[in-house]
């Protein structure tokens, strides 16, 4: 039951994203780099919200775990960037496992509030320990943490091209991994838990464990995005841990289409470009976020790709 058309689309999108760097230059490259990283965040969120049907309001916590795990390791530990990156991912993995164990004892509304509160506690902790984290002001990574050597090659993160290709590489790995995860038996199980948990239990599955797996994978991928973001742009700050980050990733996923492989990429692209435009016009650009959240829940709960999938292309999932 493999989904060959979706696989072909995956390869085509990756090839297109690789090729586009020879066409564009300047600010669009930077914008696209950011989009790719934030899309990874949304892809992680989508594993839980879209495929497994659990709406978290606290994924900023896992993004921030990756960001601070990697950033603090590089800033204070002075470790090589790949190790800092791994440290960030590990921090997010551990935190999402622990929070998942607790939060998954609740459901629906309580689950949303519990995840929100844990994330809020995390955000407040980044402020409270500002002597270490830099709090609101954040920390800029020193020069030695802006480059690393890979296979004898020195790679400088001040180069826009290097940043774009690293972001694309990570994006590609996550995308392919999620293709394998969601389009095979495991993805079917996630959907089964989302559609009918009680039935799934009575077919011999430990629903709690499947949810915990989805939660941990989801949090870890969010951490991958956070770690990448912090190291690539050399800055870690508490604004990434704010409630707004959790809402934005929810919005990216909702716009693109929850439970579709490419929904997060589409949603992140559309919303990042829109917010970019609006924040040039007004300081109150968040009003667009608010209006969109209402409009989507009222009329397009399945998002762009979800609607296309239901109307024309059932394989787009």
């Amino acid at each position: 039951m493999r989904n060959l058309r979706l696989f072909a689309l995956t390869i085509a999108v990756l090839a297109g994203l690789f090729g586009v760097q020879f066409v564009i230059s300047g600010y669009p490259v930077l914008a696209l780099t950011r989009i790719l990283i934030l899309a990874v965040f949304a892809m992680g969120y989508n594993v839980l919200m879209g495929y497994t049907g659990l709406v978290s309001l606290g994924h900023a916590l896992f993004f921030a775990a990756g960001l601070y795990g990697a950033g603090l390791a590089a800033y204070y530990g002075g470790v090589a960037l790949p190790i800092a990156f791994a440290a960030g991912i590990a921090a997010a993995a551990v935190l999402s496992l622990v929070v998942g164990l607790l939060a998954l004892r609740t459901q629906t509304v309580s689950f949303m509030i519990v995840t929100l509160m844990f994330a809020q506690a995390g955000y407040l902790a980044t402020l409270h320990f500002s002597a270490i984290t830099g709090g609101d002001q954040g920390l800029s990574l020193p020069a030695h943490a802006r480059s690393f050597s890979l296979l004898g090659q020195e790679i400088a993160l001040t180069s826009a091209t290097a940043r774009y290709n690293i972001a694309l590489a990570v994006f590609a790995v996550v995308l392919l991994a999620l293709y394998a995860l969601t389009q095979g038996p495991r993805g079917r199980l996630f959907a089964a838990v989302r559609e009918n948990p009680e039935r799934t239990r009575m077919l011999g599955y430990d629903v709690g464990r499947i949810r915990l797996l989805a939660f941990t994978v989801s949090g870890t991928i969010s951490g991958v995005a956070g770690a990448l973001y912090g190291l690539m742009f050399g800055f870690i700050g508490s604004s990434f841990a704010e409630f707004r980050s959790s809402v934005e990733v929810l919005l990216f996923t909702l716009v693109g289409g929850p439970g579709t492989l490419f929904g997060p990429l589409v949603g992140t692209t559309v919303m990042t470009l829109l917010i970019d435009r609006l924040s040039g016009l007004t300081s109150a650009y968040l009003i667009a976020v608010g209006v969109l959240l209402i409009v989507l829940t009222l009329w397009f709960p399945k998002g762009i790709l979800g609607t296309i999938r239901d109307r024309w292309a059932p394989w787009l999932r």
Partner: peptide
Amino acid sequence: NIYPAMTVRENLAVAAQS
């Protein structure tokens, strides 16, 4: 008590992969 949004094949596959 089935998975109404999934196909018959997927319903049975979820059971079989147990």
